[in-house]
Design a protein around this nucleic acid. Sequence first.
DNA 1: AGTAAGATCCTCT
DNA 2: GAGGATCTTACTC
Length: 216
Amino acid sequence: MIAPEDRTPLPREFFDRPVVEVAPDLLGRIVVRTTPDGPIVLRLTEVEAYDGPNDPGSHAYRGRTARNAVMFGPPGHVYVYFTYGMWHCMNLVCGPEGRASGVLLRAGEIVEGAGLVRARRRSARNDRELARGPARLATALDVDRALDGTDACGAGDTPLRMLTGAPAPADRVRSGPRTGVAGDGGDGDVHPWRFWVAGDPTVSPYRPHVPRRSRS
DNA sequence: AGTAAGATCCTCT
DNA sequence: GAGGATCTTACTC
């Protein structure tokens, strides 16, 4: 359960900062997903920063498109994309409007609503795998493109909201190259913009980028 | 614990 | 037409 004092909503100003500053600050924060069947509450343990047009790894690197339009909007909104033909991943838009940067939510611990999540994540062999990985996290929270553009700092009824939670102590936060991003982890332009809580069992395993061979 | 391959389709070139 | 901010299953050690 979450302590009453940790249930304060994160204000929009929280997200209106450089994305590399916001990302580590999100560790330990709370995502509340309100579904018709009840709330699902998750504590963030792993995130990655993507800094808009300056970042070759970002979906916004080549400018605005129909898919990434939300990234160019105001901070505190949710950018959801569809990938590998079957999965969704979710980001929180950061920085000033137009900067097109965001934080990918990569993993977390389900602290409420585990029953609802287990029903949706049948392949998880234990509870720590329920939201261990960005697409697993999106599946656990029942997030798809229908929620693209949702305001996570909105008032009243919202499907998605961010709470202050209990931020991870600075000496527990680690950083390193981003997972599966070309350029990171190699000799080139490395961004150590993956952030996680040291020792937390819900943090996903690191996998470097590998170009996939095309079918013949 | 590690490796490998297949699934599947949207987005942009 | 190529490749992707991934996951699951199967198989090996």
